[in-house]
Structures are given as structure tokens and as C-alpha cells.
Amino acid sequence: MQMESRVTEEGIDTSILVQPKKSKEIFIKKMMTQKALIAMSFPFLIWLFIFKYIPLWGWSIAFQDFKPAKSLLDQEWIGLEHFKFLFTDPNFYRVLRNTLGMSTINLVLGFVTAIGLALLLNEIRHAKFKKLVQTISYMPHFISWVVAASIISYSLSLDNGIVNIVLLKLGIVDEPILWLGKETWFWGINGVSDIWKNVGWNTIIYLAAITMIDPEQYEAADIDGATRLQRIRYITLPSLKPTIIILMIMNLGYILESGFEAQYLLGNPLNLAYSENLDIYVLKYGISLGNFSLATAAGIFKTVVSFIFLFTANHIAKRFDQPRLF
């Protein structure tokens, strides 16, 4: 929430800064009038520097054979050895494929369902029913993945699983399906689980954006005889466009974060080939084996990829003259 609201603020900020007059004088004058604000932002800049920039120094251990007991100066420098290990391991490409596959599915499904649900909720006039739907759809967000994974794997189990029981009763299948045992289905199961858990939560930002839409527009549309669908199509969706695009750009930066808990908890030997993602790989070959350097190397790789995605997306948005992050 916090992050999203900051974005909209920044959106307004940039529109102010793009004002044509930009002489030094105005700049200093503006600084003076805003000195209280600037002073207030200082602690956060310090925070940002201490907690986000100084730790970057730790990246150096990716190029060392790092041993926690030794001081920084005694570490053995081994260059790109760890990156070499990563890029020559066939498993690495498999987990990379899984990571990209699952996060793309989550991203696309997440956007479509959240926007869809927000639009539907917005059209509900019955306040109590709306609240009920919202509460029910938010609820899964607040249970931990450990619990959620148990619920999911139980629902999908052979004998007692509700999914299999329903499918059997409806005559859609002849015998129960071992859902979590079909490796190629895992991405889908993971995507659907993710939506079940987060769709309600993800609608909040869109619902907030919808409330910002000027009601006069709807009134005018009413007078012109627009139907409900037309109002959604021509008023709500276009008004949501800036929010959608900004969220899209930011989420593209997280493309290599396909989550960890869901895959770790729902993964099993049968679906391993499709469920293992980058984070699990790092846990197995980095942290569990005490190989912090490898874990750091993987972390650097992730950051670089995120950067590329973020900037590309932002650049494309800029090219097409759409709202953007910076």
C-alpha cells in the first residue's frame, strides 16, 4: 500500500517539475520555501544510505571464496568463479526457466484478476454484500503460506481432496487425478494458488484509484445514455491506466521474484523439475552448503536482471508517451 501511494505522489511531483521555467533562482527559492520538507526527508535519506547503499559493499564477497571467520582483507579473491559455476550448471537454466515462467503467469493472471474483481466490486451497489465479498477475498492474504500450502495440497489430494471429489461426482474424470504429481501442471497450480491468496488484496489499490475518478464523468455518461459496460470501458478503465502502467513497470522489476514459500512447500520429488525456482536453488547450493559467495553471486544476477527489466519497461512507457516511474 505504502509503496503504491508513494508512486502516485511521485507522479504528481514529476508533473510539477516538468514546468518549463527552470532557472537557478527559482530552484533556490523553491528550496527555501520547502526547507522544512527537505529537512524532514533527511533522516530517510540517511536511512536509505545506511541500509540500502552501504550493504552493497557486501557484493564483494561474490568474487571471493568467502569464509566468515576471516577478516575482509584475508579473504581469497577468486574472480568470477562463482558466476562460472552458476552459468555452467544446467540446473541453473532450468530454475531460471521455472522462475520466469511462474512469475510471468503470476504477473499476467494477477493483473487481469485484480482489475477484473475491482471493476466488478465497484459496480456492486449493495454495500453489505460488497463488504462481505471484499472480506472473503482478502482473508487468504492473511494466512501464512505454510497453512495455505497445507490447505492446497489437501484439497488436491487423491482420496479426500475436494477437487477430485467434485470432478468425480460431476463425471468429468473417471479416476482421481494426482494434481501435484503432474510436473507440467505445477506452474498453473502455483498461479491459481497465488491468485486465490492475493486477488482480494491486490484489488485495494485499484479500488482506491477508482474512488478518485470524478463522479461527474459518470453522471455525464448517464445523461448521454451510456450502459454499465460502456461506462467501464470508456471511463473507469482509461482512468485506471496510469495506475496499471506504473504497477506493471514496478512488477516487471520483480520478474525474478516468483515467490519462495509456495514453491518450497508445494514442491515434491515428482514436480521438482518444474517447481524449483531461483530462490530454492540459492538456498540449496548457497546458504545450506555455507557457500555465501554463491548466494551473493545469484543475488547480483537477480538485481542486474531486475534493473534491465525495470529500465526497459520504463523506456517503452516513455516512448509511447505513457505515465512512467521516472
Partner: peptide
């Protein structure tokens, strides 16, 4: 057991 490879320890 068909579920031997999917079940967790509790199951």
C-alpha cells in the same frame, strides 16, 4: 502408494 512422492511428513 501413488501419493508417496507428493505427501509431506505430516501426511
Amino acid at each position: 502408494d501413488k501419493e508417496a512422492f507428493v505427501g509431506n511428513y505430516d501426511e
